[in-house]
Design a protein around this nucleic acid. Sequence first.
DNA 1: CGCGGCGTTGATCTCTGTCAATACTTGTGG
DNA 2: CCACAAGTATTGACAGAGATCAACGCCGCG
Lengths: 231, 231
Amino acid sequence: MNNDDLEIVCATSLFARLQRDAANKILGWSSPKAFEKGTVLFTQGSPANSFYVVLEGWVKVYRTSSAGQETVVAVFHRGETFAEASIFLGGSYPASAETVTAARLVRIGGDVLRRAIREDPEIAFSMLASTSAHLKALIEQIEQIKRLNAKQRLADFLINLSGDRKGVSTLSLPFEKALIANRLGMKPESLSRAFLQLRPHGVAVERDRVHIHDIGQLIALVETTDDDLGE
Amino acid sequence: MNNDDLEIVCATSLFARLQRDAANKILGWSSPKAFEKGTVLFTQGSPANSFYVVLEGWVKVYRTSSAGQETVVAVFHRGETFAEASIFLGGSYPASAETVTAARLVRIGGDVLRRAIREDPEIAFSMLASTSAHLKALIEQIEQIKRLNAKQRLADFLINLSGDRKGVSTLSLPFEKALIANRLGMKPESLSRAFLQLRPHGVAVERDRVHIHDIGQLIALVETTDDDLGE
DNA sequence: CGCGGCGTTGATCTCTGTCAATACTTGTGG
DNA sequence: CCACAAGTATTGACAGAGATCAACGCCGCG
């Protein structure tokens, strides 16, 4: 593993607080691997024996209904780990994962992780911090779906994509709009219309390029309850 | 703590696999406490220093928007632990918690838990299993909200309330309908109408008593995709 | 008895899903 | 180089689900 990769791994919430030798204990036998777009990493119900670190690209985690309908639960990218909680569910993955762009990932065996925790209990705290952070993210997603409408959910998505940029921001959508729509709990048609609704709020879209005139305006949009009278 | 209480605690996924002395290490200085309905246990943003075990009653965990709107994320009852993940977020609770019935709870300090993990790393695995289980539950809730309509979500709720009973089942709703509605991501009016829609499927409601004629019928309802043609 | 909280019901409106038609983009092969 | 097909995104018309607003019924409680 080269230095750039190592830097990314050590920036994840799982590895951030670990000593270098503790990190090596986990990473020891793992090396980054490239996957092409559309590679299924694991499927819902299959034995959960590994978790992943994303070095590059995007990975969707989704559940499939009995009728074959996909529901995207999360989308991970550079500097994030996923499926590390599944290791401890004692059995099978509760969801499937697939690369949605070309991607480079590190795959780490659950047995390696378990052994590392036994040898160095401090690793357990990092694991707990990491899964707790995922838990918090899911809680926030649930609140988002329940409380916001399509337009607001898209605004929220764009805000997060902008990271810590303020004011004007131009960015390119990291993956297909159909996936964005699914992640936001709506249909592609609704996403198109949500983009149109954001135009008056300073959002211009051209293909996968999005120009945001003022992020503060989007933030205001999300915090507005449209019933700003009572409550 | 009396024997009945201890039995409940030891049945939680967090304590289930622990040796008796490991459990005592954690429970040592904690004793059950009674709370009346409507007691706020902690609020979103306040320092996260404890987690809880429910011995009796029901507790809602919810987030509050800037406009004061509440979104229920989970409702916990006998034999469940909650907020144990918050301990490891390093900072504050990401949600609030309030008893929605009279309740008896055990409150356990985060410092106690942390010390116990350092002394006995096996506890870490139980913690990880427990938070992972919560994570899985949230993933399933997200899928439920995104994929099912109001009628199906209510059916799913009733199925879970019925536990492992099959066929006919009579039960009483454990808390107010407004809370059920919120938990299911709908308005109270919609919940009323969802109950009406379930009548043809063998569900009779009278006040807080629900009589289910055939649970299998409800299960079929949830698995139906109403677009059972293509996909 | 009257009040207040909770739940239901009805009328209406808004949002989102559905279905269908139409670009636009990209890749392929003649 | 162009024709064509397949995948992706947009747009329009329409229908249905759920929200909203308002009124009312029910029940417990002072």
